[in-house]
Simulated assay, not measured.
Amino acid sequence: MHGPASPGWLLVALCAASGAYCLLRMRSGVEEQRRAAGSEAVMGFAMAAMAVPAAVFSPPAWAWPGYALVFGVAALRSLWWARTSAHHLHHSVGAAAMVYMSVVMTLSPGSPGGHHHAHGGSGAPLLTGALLLYFAGYVLASGARLVPAAAAPASGAGAVPGGAGAVTGWGDRPELARACRLSMGMAMVAMLLTL
């Protein structure tokens, strides 16, 4: 994480904006969407914090094990909720990736607290590669889902805006949630590349 300043700040902005939008999605009337949005908000803000350039802020020694603990609990929670929604499996993989990156940062050589400033060589190449493949595939699949489909024909003159199946608020729009997930997937790929 903590690479060069300019890309680091762009990553911070992207993750923080995604986390903020996910907080807004937590106001949804759909319980499953609120639950997913909460997990994604935590992930977005934590990724933003991890991406802050090292020249600006070097976390204390306890921060990386703290991240690992928080995301270990989040991974277990997401596994529990995966019984009802397959999307929570993705949350589990994301939280496990955050645990992995936190452990790598704890154990990597460098400044106090295991904070490394150099790129490469600190993670397990096979695990890092597997996570990179997973998130690259997730990014491609998420991007494909954002491609607009052919417009559906109007359902007749009697169609009522706001009827069954209509979107009630901009926070409930599925394409915005997908764009948020896509941006966090890209951020995860960028963070894994720095290990």
Rank of each mutant, 00 (worst) to 15 (best):
Y100T: 06
A166P: 00
A141Q: 14
M105W: 11
P161C: 04
V103M: 12
R145E: 10
V93T: 02
G120A: 12
A82N: 05
V167A: 03
G113I: 06
L133S: 12
W80L: 10
M101R: 08
L140N: 00
A164K: 01
M98A: 12
W80H: 13
G113F: 09
A74T: 02
E175C: 02
G158H: 12
S78P: 00
L127A: 15
P125N: 06
W170A: 07
H88R: 06
S85A: 15
D172T: 12
T168G: 09
R83Q: 10
L79Q: 02
L127E: 01
P161S: 03
T128L: 11
A154N: 08
P125G: 09
H90A: 10
G94H: 01
H119S: 13
V160E: 11
V147T: 07
H91L: 05
H91K: 02
S155F: 07
G110A: 02
W170C: 08
G120Q: 10
H87L: 13
L126S: 09
T168S: 14
H115S: 11
P153C: 05
G114K: 08
R83I: 02
G121W: 06
A149H: 05
L107N: 08
A130P: 02
V160F: 03
A159S: 15
T106R: 11
A97T: 13
V73L: 15
V139F: 07
H88M: 13
G165T: 00
G129C: 08
A86D: 05
G137H: 09
S155C: 06
P125H: 11
S85M: 12
A130K: 06
G162F: 07
T84L: 07
L132C: 08
A152L: 13
L131N: 06
R77T: 02
L131M: 11
A118G: 15
G113M: 11
A164F: 00
A150G: 09
V147D: 02
L131W: 02
P125I: 08
A157N: 12
R83E: 08
V73S: 00
A124Y: 11
V139G: 07
G162P: 01
S142L: 11
V167G: 00
A154F: 05
L127S: 10
G162H: 04
L132T: 09
A75R: 03
A86Y: 04
Y100V: 11
G129E: 08
A82L: 05
A154M: 09
A144T: 01
A82G: 03
A75C: 10
M98F: 00
G94R: 02
Y100G: 07
V104H: 02
A152I: 00
G120P: 05
V104K: 03
S155T: 09
E175Q: 09
A164P: 04
S102Q: 06
L131H: 04
L107K: 08
A150L: 14
A95V: 01
A96N: 03
M105V: 00
V147F: 09
A118R: 14
A164Q: 03
G158A: 13
A164D: 04
V160P: 01
P148G: 06
L176T: 04
H116R: 11
A157P: 12
G163A: 12
S142G: 15
Y138N: 10
